[in-house]
């Protein structure tokens, strides 16, 4: 599960950004356009030039997605522990510390209970900049707590995934989070509640092969890399170059793996509409003016 192969380009692009004054300007990873940061924020980090869906932090994604001032964080106190005292070229403890400093998150999953166009929901999102959004014990536990919170109040569950896969530094414990989260979803499914899984760039390995592909409805953002094995591993195994667009959202839609591809800027309305139908609710209405939301986003 090569979460790092996905992490590497982002590390590289960070280096490239060094020649851009920080905070004001940003660069599109896809078309390389220099973008005014405020414009990008207003556009939910979708490149205004080429439509590429850029990285978005877990917390801003959820705050953008849910109704304003409706949110309460769930399981915020769960923190990672280096049970195995894992050490490669760097101590896992130090990697955790660095990731916490960069992201201001305790681990790679953020969970909120809130409202989506006035409908109460539980929503969670992966923080990709936290060790490649990898799933260890904390991500597994927080996801289960999200499921349980939704189960207790009979709410729909939404998950935005962005992950390289299982977290190697937690060894077998991380592998077993796949079983743990899938089992929780089996129980959730038995309760007849909708689970919407939104796949964002990238969703690979152990996360793809568990909670991310178990949605009643599976949505992907455009051109997201989604798959089980990393492209490099496949290339090395079959000794062939991979076809254009392999493992991208459009490829998955073509092969029947996902229900639909939705632009990030339309996600809120689309998911609200789907959930309202699955829960047999009236057509949802937005509690806020669009301008109001934008103002909050920029702040």
């Amino acid at each position: 599960m090569n979460w790092l192969s996905r992490l590497l380009p982002s590390v590289r692009s960070k280096d490239q950004k060094k020649d851009i004054p920080e905070g004001i300007w940003s660069k599109c990873e896809n078309c390389q356009s220099i973008l005014y940061r405020a414009d990008l924020d207003k556009n939910e980090h979708v490149c205004p030039k080429c439509g590429f869906h850029m990285y978005l932090s877990a917390r801003s994604r959820l705050l953008d997605f849910l109704d304003k001032s409706s949110t309460a964080e769930i399981a915020a106190q769960v923190t990672p522990v280096d049970v195995l005292k894992f050490r490669d070229r760097k101590k896992y403890k130090d990697r955790l510390h660095d990731a916490q400093k960069i992201t201001h998150e305790k681990d790679a999953l953020v969970v909120f209970e809130g409202a989506l166009k006035k409908m109460p929901v539980v929503a969670c999102a992966f923080e990709y900049k936290f060790i490649g959004g990898s799933m260890g014990a904390v991500v597994g536990e927080k996801f289960v707590q999200a499921v349980n919170a939704a189960l207790a109040k009979r709410l729909p569950l939404i998950c935005f995934s962005a992950s390289g896969g299982a977290r190697m530094q937690e060894a077998l414990i991380s592998l077993f989070q796949m079983a743990k989260t899938s089992a929780a979803l089996a129980r959730f499914s038995e309760a007849g509640l909708p689970y919407i899984s939104v796949l964002t760039n990238p969703t690979m390995g152990g996360v793809s092969a568990s909670l991310a592909t178990l949605g009643d409805i599976i949505i992907a953002e455009p051109k997201a890399l989604i798959g089980f094995s990393g492209p490099r591993v496949i290339e090395q195994t079959i000794r062939q170059t991979l076809p254009e667009g392999f493992q991208r959202s459009e490829f998955l839609l073509e092969h029947g793996a996902i229900d639909l591809i939705v632009d990030r800027r339309a996600m809120r309305s689309k998911v609200a509409g789907l959930i309202a139908k699955l829960m047999n609710c009236a057509v949802p209405t937005d509690p806020e003016l669009q301008e109001g939301e934008d103002a909050v986003r920029q702040s």
């Binding site: 592909t213 089980f228 094995s229 990393g230 496949i234 079959i238 092969h255 793996a257």
Partner: peptide
Amino acid sequence: AYPGIEAEERNQSEAIA
């Protein structure tokens, strides 16, 4: 699990999940 083009086309992730 096998890392191959057809395996991905047939949704290896979902099969495991």
